[in-house]
Design a protein around this nucleic acid. Structure first.
Lengths: 192, 192
DNA sequence: CAAATAAAAGTGAACGTTCATTCTTTTTTA
DNA sequence: TAAAAAAGAATGAACGTTCACTTTTATTTG
């Protein structure tokens, strides 16, 4: 009785193709046949790895989101001070959004459209916990404004998505100095 | 004579239906037949008002964007002080995003996906000029940080889109007090 | 250890459906 | 009553998915 030995490479190729093509044309304008072609695979093969098109995009979303948060919290230690921890996480997120921009664009598209189903969106949110914990500590220490986590996220983190999109469109380029300015703006909007 | 015989009501009904259905399912998952049905019109009639599906969504985008900026700058006067003018515009935008949320969600979807073609996106940007002028004045007077307009927009305005999306998803509700907190965060991120 | 066999993975073509758009006919308007 | 507007049915292309089959990989047997 042979153990399932489907190649992880093929799955990854399918996920990568999905990200690229969905970024360029949107989910519903991306046919399975094109995804298959870009991944060097037969259309039928996709159905060995995923239930259907919706499942493919859900799984892609969850995969990318996990990569994103793993990157964001790498080397972060709960022993860091609030300010130090925030700067660390913020700069990792900035790095991800501005350099892994294919992934970041895909997430942005998913978060602003109805292509991902609700359970998968929920699944993707879980991973942000360390940041919420940091903010809780910051509020307790009187360093961070005692306001809703949604507000903190909207001002401290979300602007990076906008900047990433603008940069991706080619309308402007974020340099080192501007990243510092952005960090400064982020911190001053949430610090007490 | 001939041109203006077509009813503006029907055009509006089509645009409204497009907004609602695209919000719920995304552009490519919204058939013309459904748009027609919701607007109480035959599918063929759509083609009397718009060239094709792409044209319909482009025109809808431009229409909604114009409504949005008209709302945002209503009662704003260039004679207002920088701080007063900013607060006025910011609160009008907040009002629009949180109350005309069908329109705002539609814009957010368009700004984060490839459904609108580039010329129509450019067309939509034009209308923001009064805000850029205000910021220019603010920088000259040393009241606003001397940073790129993209950064100012990212921190002062864009967070409202995130909050609108979260509210629309039903995960939380922005009340009066939180709007004040949000304004406070917006202003402190851009003031010098 | 081969040869034989079984199971899994992979494929290309085909199916049924859906959709944007057009064509033909009817209704409205001036 | 003629021209414009609207309708509904028709059309052809495209798509997601499945099916019947082949190739590859693993397991058993002599």
């Amino acid at each position: 009785m042979a153990k399932l030995q489907k190649s992880i490479d093929k799955r990854n190729a399918l996920i990568d193709a999905t990200i690229t093509l969905v970024n360029n044309a949107g989910f519903h304008a991306t046919p399975m046949s094109k995804i298959a072609k870009m991944a060097n695979v037969s259309p039928a093969t996709i159905y060995l790895y995923f239930e259907n098109k919706q499942d493919l995009v859900n799984k892609t979303y969850i995969d990318v989101k996990a990569q994103y948060t793993a990157f964001a919290f790498k080397d972060y230690k709960e022993t860091m001070s609030v300010e130090e921890g925030f700067e660390h996480i913020w700069k990792r997120i900035a790095d991800f959004k501005l350099n892994a921009s294919e992934s970041a664009m895909f997430l942005s598209q998913c978060d602003n459209t109805p292509i991902i189903d609700e359970p998968s969106l929920q699944e993707g949110i879980k991973h942000l916990q360390p940041l919420l914990n940091l903010w809780k500590r910051g509020k307790a220490e009187g360093i961070i404004k005692p306001i809703s986590d949604y507000l903190l996220y909207a001002y401290a983190i979300n602007p990076l998505s906008f900047l990433m999109t603008a940069q991706k469109r080619g309308t402007f380029k974020l340099d080192e100095k501007q990243i510092e300015e952005a960090y400064e703006a982020a911190w001053s909007s949430i610090k007490k």
